Simulated scan of single mutants.
Amino acid sequence: MKVLVTGAGGMVGSHMVELLHNRGDKVIGIWHKNKKNVEQITLPIKFVQCDLRYAQGIDELIMDFMPDQIYHLAAQSYPTVSWISPSETIDVNINSTINIYEAIKKARKYIDSSYDPMVVVACSSAEYGETLNQMQGKGEVYVKETAELQPLHPYGVSKVGQDLISFQYFMNDHIRCIRARIFNSTGTRKVNDVTSDFTRRAVEAEKSGIWELRVGNLDTKRAIMDQRDLVKALMLLAEKGKAGDVYNISSEYVYKMSDIVELIEKLIGHKLEIKVDPALIRPTDEKIIVGDITKLKKDTGWKQDIKMEQTIKDMLEYWHNIS
């Protein structure tokens, strides 16, 4: 199978191209700004630098390669950055998605009218936003795909746009796609999320002997899954998901941010002095984020295999090895 992965420089994409290659697929990975993870990959995988905001590059790639599957993972993926650069976030996340679908249309027009790839689009739980808080006020926790989309930051808004533009291309142009609303995930090669920041800072504290940990809000709760379980879900959706449909991908296990700190302390064998950094507090923040994954499990048979303790152990070892 020929597979194109955008965002191959990110945590999920870099692990995914390795898994696809080892499965025997012919893979091309697209990266743009971040090459650090790409440089860690020793397998003979073809990587191409391409800014997806500009159509020519992705047009040529898709028309030359004609991939059977496209995993669109590339994004400006940080809510905190989206407050600083809202226009860029919207541009990257929505226009890049449009350009992929338009490239498929051009491939059908100029190369093969029967071209029919499956596109798996990495959408986000951030699309639900305030709906999550409203649900919790009613005593509900697990959000379904049918819930109202009320994002709380520009990143969430951009993901709603990406989600709905995909639905539009499915309905109007019959391009098969899966909209995967991904909840919190982490793992080796991840940066700028709570678990990666905490594990990296813990390793720095261990090496310096200054046992401090800068944190934001430790009272929020998140369903966090290992990137290996996420990659497995995305690949199952490409094979078994219903084209045009939307699926939550969420851990079934919910962790308070203070729980993550306690797991890290247990694994490093040392208590950390907590220092709350106002810069790490978001203007608005969902109190708890966890998705209903009934549809995902029913349609694909997916189940979560990796426990958080194993994920954190692997991340601590990763930071030890690269720092």
Score class of each variant (00 low, 15 high):
R179K: 15
M66H: 03
A243W: 03
V191N: 11
P154V: 04
K207A: 12
H15I: 06
I264M: 07
N93I: 08
E286H: 00
V5E: 09
T89N: 09
L272Q: 05
Q49L: 01
K138P: 00
V215G: 08
D259M: 09
F167Q: 11
T300N: 12
G29F: 10
N172C: 03
H15Y: 11
A103W: 13
N133Q: 09
E252C: 02
I58P: 01
T80L: 08
V143C: 10
Y128M: 10
V141D: 10
L19K: 15
S125I: 02
N99R: 10
C177M: 10
H15D: 04
I224E: 09
L237F: 02
N22M: 10
L263H: 12
D292W: 09
G241C: 07
T220Y: 09
R201P: 00
T188W: 02
T311C: 12
K297Q: 13
I62H: 07
K26M: 07
G244S: 02
E130H: 03
E148I: 09
P151I: 03
K36I: 13
Y101D: 03
T220Q: 13
Y255L: 07
I322M: 12
K221V: 05
V203K: 11
N133P: 00
N37K: 13
I268H: 06
H320I: 02
M66I: 04
D226L: 04
K36G: 00
M315T: 05
T199P: 06
T89D: 12
P117L: 03
P154E: 07
V121F: 11
A147M: 13
D259N: 14
V194M: 08
L237E: 07
F47M: 05
L263R: 10
N22S: 12
Y128H: 07
A233K: 04
W31H: 14
T311W: 13
E286S: 09
A107L: 07
R282F: 14
D173K: 12
A74E: 07
Q56G: 08
S82A: 14
Q136F: 07
K109C: 01
E18D: 03
L164H: 10
Y54W: 06
S166A: 15
Q69P: 01
A202V: 02
G209N: 09
L52F: 08
K242F: 02
V194H: 03
A223H: 03
G269W: 05
I182R: 06
W302M: 04
N22H: 02
D245F: 04
M118P: 09
S158R: 05
I30W: 06
E212M: 06
H32C: 04
G187D: 07
I264A: 09
Q168H: 13
L52Y: 10
D163P: 01
N172D: 13
Y110P: 00
I312G: 08
Y155N: 01
Y253C: 00
I293E: 06
D64R: 14
